[in-house]
């Protein structure tokens, strides 16, 4: 049976179609103002080219920020559970997951079946999230997908607040006016975020098989900082953004099987 997982995130929406634990296709789209439309668009993108239509999908599980607003989903599961399950599909030995999303950051422990055993999320302040990096990219007028590379070119250490995004933003502006290079500012900010992530991770068990998921994990500057702080080399999925949707699809498969029994 074909199943699907759909992850409506705050910035991006992702869909994964699976059959017998095998990934058939996936899509990554921008989240629009209306979650139900975004959901439909995202799943259509994933279906595109597979010869399948939505009616062929036996079970859909939604996750992410907009998970309750997906009209064609039969169930919804939190992104925390989905990230653990998805990471487990890629890397069965992984027990520690750092998920860096647009709105928040999570440290997750899971067992050999990808079931969550413990998790910690940061508070609702935006510091250390994808949204925060977007704001900073905007302030520094650097394209978002270039900030990671640029941060690696830094030549001097700058310490930023590890607490507040608002203050960090004004500080970044002040530094820019003083002539500090963008790469140094970015390196300092990436460092501050990595410290926050490390503090989260320390509150769960840090296992040597460790992965970073979510949109920010595509930022190589960020991954480098985290590697240094944690002292471990994370294993990275080829498409870390779709892990939530992948986990949702695995839940869909499990639920469909339970239903048919």
């Amino acid at each position: 049976m074909f199943v699907a997982g759909i992850d409506i995130g705050s910035r991006g929406s992702k869909a994964v179609i699976m059959e017998d634990s095998r990934m058939v296709s996936f899509s990554i789209c921008e989240t629009g103002p209306e979650s139900s439309k975004t959901a439909r668009f995202t799943i259509d993108e994933a279906l595109n080219g597979t010869g399948l239509s939505l009616e062929d999908i036996g079970y859909v599980v939604a996750t992410g920020y907009g998970r309750i607003l997906v009209p064609f989903a039969k169930a919804n599961v939190s992104e925390i559970s989905c990230h653990a399950r998805g990471a487990n599909w890629y890397f069965p030995s992984v027990r520690t997951i750092l998920d860096m999303g647009g709105q928040d950051c999570k440290a997750i422990n899971c067992d050999e079946n990808g079931r969550v055993t413990n998790f910690i999320m940061n508070d609702k302040c935006a510091g250390g999230t994808g949204r925060f990096l977007e704001v900073i990219a905007d302030v520094l007028q650097v394209p978002l997908d270039e900030i990671g590379d640029l941060s690696l070119k830094s030549t001097q250490d700058i310490t930023f607040s590890t607490v507040c995004a608002v203050f960090a933003k004004s500080e970044a502006l002040a530094l820019l006016r003083k002539g500090v290079s963008r790469s140094d500012i970015l390196a300092g900010l990436h460092d501050a975020i990595a410290v926050r992530c490390l503090n989260l991770l320390k509150r769960v068990v840090i296992n040597k098989d460790f992965t970073v998921t979510g949109g920010i994990s595509k930022n190589i500057g960020m991954v480098e900082k985290i590697k240094n702080k944690v002292g471990l080399e994370p294993v990275l999925a080829p498409d870390p953004q779709i892990i939530g949707a992948l986990g949702a699809a695995l839940f869909a498969q499990e639920k469909a099987q339970a239903q048919s029994k």
Binding site: Y65, V77, S78, E79, I80, S81, Q103, D104, D111, R115, V116, T117, N118, F119, M121, K124
Partner: peptide, 21 residues
Amino acid sequence: TGQIMTRVQAFLEMLEGRARR
């Protein structure tokens, strides 16, 4: 709402996972 709901849901899912073990 929002993040609180996500955390509570994940917490309940975690309890479910523990119950199964």
